[in-house]
Computed example of a mutant assay.
Amino acid sequence: MKRLAIALFAAAALAGCATTGKLSSSERLELYRAHAGAPVRDFQYFGSLNGWTELGDSALAVWTKPSEAWLLSLSGPCMDLSYAPAIGVTSMMGRVSAKFDRVIVRSGSPGMAPIPCRIDSIQPLDVKALRASEKELRDAKVEARAEDQGSGGN
């Protein structure tokens, strides 16, 4: 069932990125959701992130290690998340907890106060499967572009 959902998403994503060449935030969010496990209450956090990816204005993925990532759904729209140069997360005793902790959006504007956004849910991501799916999408996109250019169409 999960494979069917991924295949359907891949077909839709290819149609969507045929003109832009890039997945939209909502398409990326669906891809990440397809590789997310059941919600958990919290995760261990050592004070720094290995990376993060915005997935629209109410979700993001954070990497705590190169092979460990979490899908964070926020309680509402988080202003400027798509444009933020940096983010932070609050934690208590080395744990980030759903319903309690927040993502802090660091704006690039001097004098602007950081914007806190409450974490509504946390889901572990299957990083290996997510990377494989992203590679499949990239390969399929390159193949579709080559076929399109070979037929002389736009």
Rank of each mutant, 00 (worst) to 15 (best):
M79R: 05
S24P: 03
G51R: 12
S107K: 06
L72G: 02
K22N: 12
W52P: 01
G111F: 03
G94A: 13
T20V: 10
R131I: 06
A69E: 09
P110S: 02
F100G: 03
S73V: 12
I104V: 13
A34K: 03
F100T: 15
T19F: 07
S67E: 15
G47V: 08
L49R: 11
E54D: 08
I115L: 03
R28Q: 10
W63A: 15
E30C: 05
M112T: 09
S67N: 15
W70D: 07
D126C: 06
A84M: 05
S58A: 15
A69Y: 08
A129E: 13
R106L: 06
H35S: 00
S82M: 11
I104Q: 09
A86Y: 00
L60A: 09
M112R: 10
T19E: 09
K128Y: 04
A98V: 12
Y83M: 04
E27P: 04
V62N: 10
G21F: 14
N50C: 13
S67W: 12
D101Y: 03
R33Q: 14
N50H: 14
H35R: 00
R102S: 11
V89A: 06
D120K: 15
C78G: 15
D120N: 14
R33C: 12
T53D: 15
C117L: 05
G94Y: 08
D101K: 05
G37K: 00
S73G: 12
L60E: 07
M92V: 11
I122Q: 09
L55K: 07
I87A: 04
R131Y: 07
L130C: 00
N50Y: 12
P77L: 03
P110V: 04
P116V: 06
A98H: 12
A113D: 00
L23I: 07
P77D: 08
V62M: 11
S26P: 01
Q123L: 11
G108H: 10
V127I: 12
Y32W: 11
G51P: 12
L23V: 04
M112N: 01
P110T: 06
E68K: 14
G108D: 10
S73E: 15
D42G: 10
A38Y: 10
S82L: 11
S26N: 02
Y83R: 06
S26H: 02
P39A: 13
S107R: 00
G88C: 00
R131G: 10
Y83N: 02
G111Y: 02
M92A: 12
G108E: 10
L74D: 08
D101A: 03
R102A: 10
A36V: 11
D57Q: 14
S73N: 15
I87E: 01
A86G: 00
T20D: 05
M112P: 04
C117W: 01
S109T: 08
A36N: 09
L23S: 01
T90F: 01
L31A: 04
A69F: 07
